[in-house]
């Protein structure tokens, strides 16, 4: 049941994207997101689409996995589209009773929808091709400069990776407690929302107690193995940039230049009334 759940959404495959340094992928995602907001012409979006399709192809992740992430934002997407469609004033195209759909409305709605979809797909490429552990490692190293302003980067990264390690264990535990309480007559499935929330108490209390006990044990085990924070600690699998990572940064730069260029063409075309 709960045990079969895979953690995160990592899709194992053997591709260049998978092998890239997590820092490169973090930077790449950031560059992509920024580019979506900075360059708004149709030409720039054509370039972005091409880049996105190319990366998906190279990553060897089936597109249907990319689409999975979209399910969670379908409501947000619909609301955005509907609001933009009806509320933007301009040249009226269709009039239904008091509601009007304008040319500008359609344009903005389509544009916003595409932007949202690209945002989600773009960032899910990163999570689909990077193991959660790799990602925390990347974050730790990328955010290391923040140490200077007293942000406990190592501690945060350690907490994240421990949380990741314990999610499946706590899931299993939840499953066990649920079954044990059901055997004692607890009911987790019927009643209205408030009733159901109340019924969760006999599940949550033992789960919390056990989680704290585990935390205590783990802290002791970590100390027993000489853990004393990030200072003086070395890495077994240190992150080192390889040739492909440097190339990836170049590709990113090229992408930005192309986007910039495409944007310029778009503006020029508009100014000279070509589009």
């Amino acid at each position: 049941m709960l045990r079969d759940m895979t953690l995160g959404q990592y899709y194992p495959a053997n591709s260049v994207i998978h092998r890239l340094d997590p820092r490169v992928k973090l930077a790449g995602t950031l560059v992509f997101i920024i580019s979506l907001f900075a360059f708004r012409s149709a030409e720039a979006y054509v370039a972005a689409t091409l880049a996105l399709v190319a990366v998906i192809r190279i990553s060897k992740v089936p597109p249907k996995f990319m689409m999975r992430g979209l399910k969670s934002i379908i409501m947000l997407l619909m609301i955005t589209v509907v609001f933009n469609l009806f509320l933007i004033r301009g040249t009226v195209v269709v009039r239904i009773w008091k509601l009007t759909i304008t040319k500008e409305g359609i344009e903005t709605a389509v544009f916003m929808a595409i932007r949202l979809i690209y945002l989600i797909v773009g960032s899910s490429i990163m999570t689909l091709t990077t193991t959660p552990n790799n990602l925390t490692d990347g974050l730790e190293k990328a955010l290391r400069p923040l140490n200077k302003i007293r942000v406990p980067v190592h501690d945060i990264a350690m907490m994240m990776s421990i949380a990741l390690r314990f999610i499946p264990i706590l899931m299993e535990e939840t499953d066990k407690i649920m079954k044990a309480q059901m055997a004692r007559g607890a009911d987790f499935e019927s009643g209205n929302l408030i009733q159901r929330a109340k019924n969760m108490v006999p599940l949550l209390v033992p789960l919390f107690i056990s989680a704290f006990r585990r935390a205590n044990d783990l802290a002791m085990a970590m100390e027993a193995r000489g853990y004393r924070g990030g200072e003086g600690r070395t890495k077994m699998k240190p992150l080192v940039y390889a040739h492909r990572d440097r190339m990836a940064y170049l590709v990113m730069l090229a992408y930005l230049l192309v986007m910039f260029g495409a944007n310029r063409i778009g503006f020029a075309a508009r100014i000279f009334g070509l589009s």
């Binding site: 970590m222 193995r225 000489g226 853990y227 004393r228 003086g232 600690r233 070395t234 890495k235 077994m236 699998k237 240190p238």
Partner: peptide, 11 residues
Amino acid sequence: GFGPENMGMPS
């Protein structure tokens, strides 16, 4: 590798 990492050994 956790213990040796805490000891600050090279990779």
